[in-house]
Design a protein around this nucleic acid. Structure first.
Lengths: 407, 407
DNA sequence: CGATTTTTTTTGAGGCTTGAAATAAAGGGC
DNA sequence: GCCCTTTATTTCAAGCCTCAAAAAAAATCG
């Protein structure tokens, strides 16, 4: 329901809007901000000089570039890269990636660690994680109070607050309180997000025109996940993050899935499912925990060279994915879909079967949905993590308006 | 993205909030409004005296009821019933219901018309509809300028703007511009909404504690429809309203649905599907266009008395519904579900099969979702239509702030 | 009938946005 | 090199809006 507005809410919102515009456009003059926000030049001037005084923005008059002709040249405002920093952590099976970015999003430091979480106690995991982050941060030479936010991207589900990892394929541990560990250790707010949600967030940031209101990012990797935007909001349930698209039912009593159920989409379209089928292994065989990198590409090549079993393997993956999408498209009008991850290299082999399922579904508008491909998911996960962390800092800074007014 | 705020947006929002609170609570004092909005008493006083002067609210000091003790008695504010009126139209197969409500939601006039739309031309439909509304309005004796809003509830899909009926089972006509017909004729804004969406809206209005963030209302009637709230918003696609839950696939190559496809949920749980199966007719038999009222209740009684075929008929309906829900619960965490319509009288017969499907699904939190039943859907459809129309009038009146300020 | 209590209105202050005027900082022309 | 023109930004005064405090209103109680 509508929320009541106080006087300073106005300033808060307008500050945030200006920060967001500068963040998106990189460098932009006060006049352009006034135009694109429909705020008056006077207001933009007041707010932006506050933001500069607070160190959030910087004015870079010298780099205005080619003079545009007569008149006082406009001064571009940019995000002050040194205002704050964020730590981004990507947890994968067997590895921890730690990245430090400045307030403009530039990578300041990056380290990859191997960490086999399959046999780790809760406490050993905590110690390893903390020491790896500490090591990367110390190497960057930044002051501790520069660390404004920590965002963690994981495969698996988290609680709605983004403080705990509920379940993840990287470890048998459950309810891992990573949020508490890191916020106590590093004295900064922490948020944990699902990797597919971060991919969707990154796409939304990269190209809001294509990826804004309704779209889905489907990650085709060892498992199958989805990041879903509906009405401009990430849909991820009330209790856990990350939609369980890969575990929608495709065929009752069908192939065995990692989750223990039978017939999930993932059991046809995940890496292990494709390998299992291509090798002629039975559908109820226990899913392999790991697939050799490049294996999917090799099977795809075999299919392209005419191998019938390989062709049928990908066709069946396409049918599983198409059937899941058709189910969603019965609820929400069809929308743009992005396939991300190394499974996307074989999308040409899955597409005919997928499109056929959609065409025969009742969602008649589904036949021509646009589908995009991104084979490498890691840049997207990292980017989504970064923009998430920076946006949160933006919001916290916009809220500081009342404190500033007092001083 | 965040939207910029101007000075008068604040007043607009606070006006709307106060109107909404009075509408919900019926009669409420200025002091209580101040408390529940966190606005100051001064602001509430200013705004509410504006609203009274504009005729939107009325102060009814006399009816304060039992004196609460010492001190100046509080004066309750209420919606002024005579401020404006709304016309609500429910289109059903073979019938048009016209209802006129005042600004407090009280029914002023109501007429039911028989209208067989199966064989009507576009123009004949227009003329019949207009004349029936005109007749009801004229009988009410209200001035024409009292008609502030027309809301139409239909089975079928509408465009996103709610101006046209795209497809509906009540007529073979498509793209029916009812919005334009009525707004031209009655000089009032018109909105057309799907009946299931209206049911969900009504439930949300009746009990926001149970039905607010995520829930679904499933209409079990001749067909099967769904009104879906996610994150507090009605989800209904970008192009059409009403989710097509009934046309999610339950069994590939299964029973024949009204829509022409095979295996839809509706082809197992709709009236015609239950009758077809109970009579031992083949699943590919063309769906009956009409089922005698009370027939479902009779079959349900047969099942309760031990008829095996009847029991299996409802069990299969339960499985179809459960399978559709399981698909949704793989995307969004499980939520409260309401079954509405005469099909709900047999819910006890469907529930075991439905729950079993959910328990065996991967959405492990789905096993205990609360399920409510409302056998009679018409009061909900009408109520949703009414609250929709009145809320729109509220919003338009809150926006009048700038005009008032000028005078 | 006056004191007390509770609700509502009035008043003055402070914050926010805005249009207009003023100022700043270029390029162009002579 | 100097003044005019042009464009960007800042300053200023005015108008709204909300709020806290004071005043007024309207009961009950003794």
């Amino acid at each position: 329901m509508t929320v009541v507005l106080r006087s300073d809410d106005m300033r808060r919102r307008n500050r945030l809007r200006i920060i967001q515009i500068v963040r998106r456009k990189g460098a932009v003059s006060r006049g352009e901000i006034a135009q694109s926000t429909a705020l008056s030049a006077a207001t933009v001037s007041t707010i932006s000089s506050d933001l500069i005084a607070e160190g959030i923005l910087v004015a870079r008059g010298s780099e205005t570039g080619a003079s545009t002709g007569r008149g006082r040249p406009s001064v571009n405002l940019s995000i002050n890269p040194r205002f704050r920093h964020a730590v981004l952590i990507i947890l994968k099976i067997g590895a921890v990636n730690v990245t430090i970015i400045d307030f403009a999003g530039t990578v300041i430091a990056h380290q990859d660690f191997h960490l086999d979480m399959a046999n780790l106690t809760m406490d050993a995991f905590r110690q390893a994680l903390v020491s790896e982050i500490r090591q990367t941060w110390d190497a960057s030479g930044l002051d501790n109070d520069q660390l404004a936010r920590i965002w963690v991207g994981v495969q698996g589900t988290t609680d709605i607050a983004g403080k705990n990892v509920l379940r993840s394929p990287m470890t048998p541990l459950t309810n891992i309180p990573i949020g508490r560990w890191l916020s106590e250790e590093f004295r900064a707010p922490v948020r944990i997000a699902n990797d597919c949600d971060l991919i969707a967030k990154a796409l939304n940031w990269r190209d809001p025109r294509l990826y804004s209101c309704n779209f889905a990012a489907i990650l085709l990797a060892h498992g199958v996940g989805m990041g879903l935007f509906l009405r401009g909001q990430i849909i991820n349930g009330t209790k856990s993050s990350g939609t369980e698209f890969g575990h929608m039912l495709f065929e009752s009593d069908g192939a065995l899935c990692r989750c223990g159920s039978k017939g999930c989409i993932e059991a046809y379209a995940g890496d292990y499912a494709i390998v299992r089928r291509f090798r002629g292994q039975p559908g109820d065989m226990k899913p392999a925990s790991h697939v050799v990198p490049g294996e999917i590409a090799r099977i795809a090549n075999a299919a392209r060279e005419g191998d019938e079993l390989a062709r049928e393997t990908f066709a069946s993956a396409g049918r599983a994915l198409g059937s899941g999408l058709a189910g969603i498209f019965a609820l929400v009008d069809p929308f743009r879909v992005v396939f991300v991850g190394h499974g996307a290299i074989a999308f040409d082999l899955m597409e005919p079967a997928l499109r056929e399922i959609l065409e025969n579904s009742n969602a008649f508008a589904a036949r021509d949905i646009p589908i995009d491909l991104y084979v490498d998911e890691m840049p997207l996960v990292l980017e989504g993590c970064g923009i998430g962390a920076l946006s949160e800092i933006d919001e916290s800074q916009a809220d500081k308006v009342s404190e500033m007014a007092r001083s």
